[in-house]
Structure formats: C-alpha cells, structure tokens
Design a protein around this nucleic acid. Structure first.
Lengths: 143, 143
DNA sequence: TTCTTTTTGATACGGTTTATCAATTTCAAC
DNA sequence: GTTGAAATTGATAAACCGTATCAAAAAGAA
C-alpha cells in the first residue's frame, strides 16, 4: 500500500468520472507533488528529469491542472509564475509574504476561517476552498 | 477644480518627490482609472482608445505601475492577467467566486481584516495589502 | 527660447503556459 | 492475450502578458 493511497484514490475517482485514464506519468507526478508544500511546473520538470528524462513539460502542466480539477491542488499566480499548492497534505494554510525579500510564512487561523464561512453563507455560497495572502514587510525588511 | 483633485494631488506629490513629470497621458489615465473599481491594462487601453487613439499600451502599463508606487493603485494577479485595483476609491474589497458559473460577489469584512493584522504583527509583519478569495458554489449552482 | 531630463509610442523581446499533432499507451470488449 | 477505439504523451510551435529598447517628442527649469 502506497504512502499516498488516499490521494491516489481521489485522483482515480476523478479520472473515472471523466473518462480519463490512469497513466504512469500521472502516478509519478502525483507522488512527487504530494511530497511538496507547493511547487511550480518548471521546478517539478527539473526534479523529475532524473527519474524520467523524457517526461515533457507540457505533461507536467496538464497534469498539475488536472490535479486542480480533482481538488488535489490549487493554482496560485505568484509574480510571473504559477505555484501549485498541495491542498491534501494538511489543513489549508495561508501565506504572509514579504514584498521586499520574498520571505513566506505560512499560518492557519480558525477564527478567520469561521468568519469566511459566515460571509459565504450570508451570500448563499458554499465554500470549497479559499486563498488568503497578506503582503507586507517582514521585521527585517522594515528597517 | 477637478473631480479627482485629491488623488491628482497625491500623484503630483509622488512625481515631485521622484523627479518625474506631470504629463497629459498620466492625467488622462488617472482620471479614467479613478472611475473604476478595478481594471486591467488591456481594458483601459481599449477604453481610452476613443479619447486618444495614439496612447500606447506600454504607457498604460507604466502608468498603472506608477500608480501602485504612488499608493493609488494595487496590482493583483487574477487568473492570467493583472488587475489594478482602485485603492483610493473605497476600502479594500475581497471576492466570493463561484467555481461553477464564475459569478463574483465583492465583500468587505472588518473583523477578518482585524484578525489579519493580528496574525501579521504576531509574525513581525507590517501589512501593506492583502488578497482574500473564497471559492465555492453560489446558491443557484449548488442545485 | 534654450537645454537637459523624462516620457512617450511602436515594437521587439523574454518568460510562462497552452495548442497542435503524430506516435504511443491505456483499457474495455472480445 | 488480442484487438481496437479513445485518451495521453512528448516535442515543439504558437499565444499570451508584461517589460525593455530606443528614437522622437514633451516637460519644465533657467
């Protein structure tokens, strides 16, 4: 039984529902993806080049977008690149980002999440996921 | 006295401090920008094409970025494009986004903002801006 | 007006992501 | 296990957004 059996199951269920196929590449990419907190397609391309030198960049992009549709990943446009966040790994985490040095601090706050639910239900929405990013200066860069 | 005298003053002060010049284009773009809640460079390009067919896209980008530096605007990567938000117009607004039909509802919530400040200061950060997006199903799409 | 500095507009460019398509792989039906 | 229809892959071309470049024009102080 694989380390990522649960997520592999989520993927297979999504594939089944959409007449898509389970391939060696999709398995390989999911395994690598789940070891990360967040990663770009380019980073994953280089990382997997050792395991499979013929794995194409387009396949990485396609597969990471597939993960988003399956609810396993979440795309986040950061600067000029797209970060793919690992959603299944642990509870959702939000980001504090220093606009000067790029430092990223992850955090979780139940109170904020509860208020989000409130806002959503007040507007008739059911939340599936969310994204919260706070941009500012870290203590070092403020001086 | 123009309708946007205050913001025009903010711009002029920024220009003065940085040895930059007040131009017809900057005035034109600021006037158009302040009438919007948020806009992309491309949208503004088409919108202003009627008033000044020779206004270049590069100038729009440069000027909107200038507004960000002056604190009048705020860039936000939304989908593949960059949205420039009108900061002076009113308080920051966040988004509720339906993942099924694409409907977008804007909202503001002081309690959430206060908690954000708390999280930031606990981590030694000073917030400059933030971004909060809630993804889910609207009442119509849930059924 | 003059002269220096900044800005503009047109377009080339760079980096990221998607589209294209022939060859390959999957997988359900035999 | 073969077969065959349908989906996927890999390589690369193309699209897209935003920035850099640079000669010509405009701003603004002297």
């Amino acid at each position: 039984m694989s380390k990522h059996a649960k997520e592999m199951g989520v993927l297979k269920e999504h594939l089944g529902k959409h007449q898509l196929k389970f391939t060696r590449q999709r398995e390989l990419i999911l395994d690598a993806f789940l070891k990360q907190e967040h990663i770009t397609a380019e980073e994953m391309y280089h990382q997997l080049a050792r395991k499979d030198p013929h794995l194409g960049l387009a396949t990485i992009y396609r597969t990471l977008n597939l993960f988003c549709e399956a609810g396993l990943a979440q795309a986040r446009h950061f600067g000029t690149q797209t970060q793919y966040d690992n959603v299944s790994h642990k509870g959702h985490h939000d980001h504090l980002i220093c606009t000067s040095c790029g430092k990223i601090v992850e955090f979780e706050n139940c109170d904020i999440e509860r208020l989000q639910e409130e806002v959503a239900s007040r507007n008739g929405f059911t939340i599936q996921t969310h994204r919260l990013e706070l941009y500012g200066l870290c203590s070092r860069c403020r001086h």
